[in-house]
Measured scan of single mutants.
Amino acid sequence: EWSVQQVSHWLMSLNLEQYVSEFSAQNITGEQLLQLDGNKLKALGMTASQDRAVVKKKLKEMK
Rank of each mutant, 00 (worst) to 15 (best):
A53Y: 12
L33V: 03
V55A: 03
L33N: 06
M46V: 14
T29S: 13
Q5K: 13
K56V: 15
N39Y: 09
F23E: 08
L59D: 07
V55L: 13
Q6L: 02
E61C: 06
W2C: 00
Y19C: 03
L41W: 02
A43I: 08
I28P: 04
N39E: 15
V7N: 07
S24D: 09
W2S: 04
G38Q: 10
H9W: 10
E17L: 01
M46P: 05
G38N: 15
E17W: 00
Q26S: 10
V4Q: 07
S49I: 07
G30N: 00
K40D: 11
Y19E: 12
A43S: 13
K63F: 01
K57M: 12
K42R: 12
S13W: 00
E22P: 04
T47Y: 10
L11D: 06
T47I: 11
V54S: 08
E61A: 11
W2A: 02
D37H: 04
S3G: 11
L14C: 08
Y19D: 09
V55H: 01
V20F: 05
M46A: 01
V54F: 13
I28M: 05
T47P: 03
L36A: 09
A53M: 13
M62Y: 09
A25L: 08
F23N: 06
E31I: 03
L59S: 06
T47F: 12
S8Y: 05
V4Y: 10
Q26W: 01
W2G: 05
E31Y: 08
S49P: 15
D51G: 01
L44N: 05
F23S: 07
M12K: 14
V54A: 09
N15Y: 01
V54M: 14
K58F: 08
A48K: 15
S8F: 01
D51F: 03
V20A: 12
I28N: 02
S13Y: 02
Q26T: 03
N15C: 00
K63Q: 13
M12H: 11
L41Q: 05
S3M: 00
T47D: 14
K60S: 13
V20C: 12
V20L: 07
A25H: 08
W2I: 00
S13P: 01
E1P: 04
L41G: 03
K40N: 11
A53F: 08
Q50R: 14
S13F: 03
Q26C: 05
E17T: 14
E31W: 02
G38T: 15
Q35F: 03
E31N: 01
I28K: 04
Q32D: 13
L41M: 12
L11F: 03
R52F: 05
Q18F: 01
T29V: 02
G30Q: 02
K60V: 12
H9P: 00
Q6T: 04
K58G: 12
K42T: 13
K57D: 15
G30L: 06
E22D: 07
M12W: 04
A43N: 10
E17N: 14
T47K: 14
Q32Y: 06
F23P: 07
V20R: 08
V4K: 11
D37W: 00
L16R: 02
Q26L: 03
W2Q: 02
M62T: 04
V7I: 08
D51Q: 00
S49H: 15
L41T: 04
Q32I: 12
L59N: 04
D37N: 14
L59G: 03
G45Q: 01
G45I: 00
Q18H: 07
V20M: 08
M62C: 07
K63C: 14
D51V: 00
K57G: 13
L59R: 04
L36W: 01
L34G: 06
V4A: 12
K63W: 07
Q26P: 01
V7G: 01
L11Q: 02
S21T: 14
E31Q: 14
K60H: 10
K58E: 14
Y19P: 11
M12S: 13
Q18C: 10
V55I: 13
Q26A: 12
S8V: 11
K42C: 07
V54T: 10
K57F: 01
E1D: 14
G45H: 00
A25Y: 06
M12Q: 15
T29C: 04
N15K: 12
S21H: 10
A48D: 15
K56D: 11
Q50N: 14
E17Q: 11
K58A: 15
G38V: 10
H9F: 10
N15L: 04
R52D: 01
A43M: 10
E61D: 08
N39C: 13
L11I: 04
Q50C: 13
K57H: 11
L14E: 07
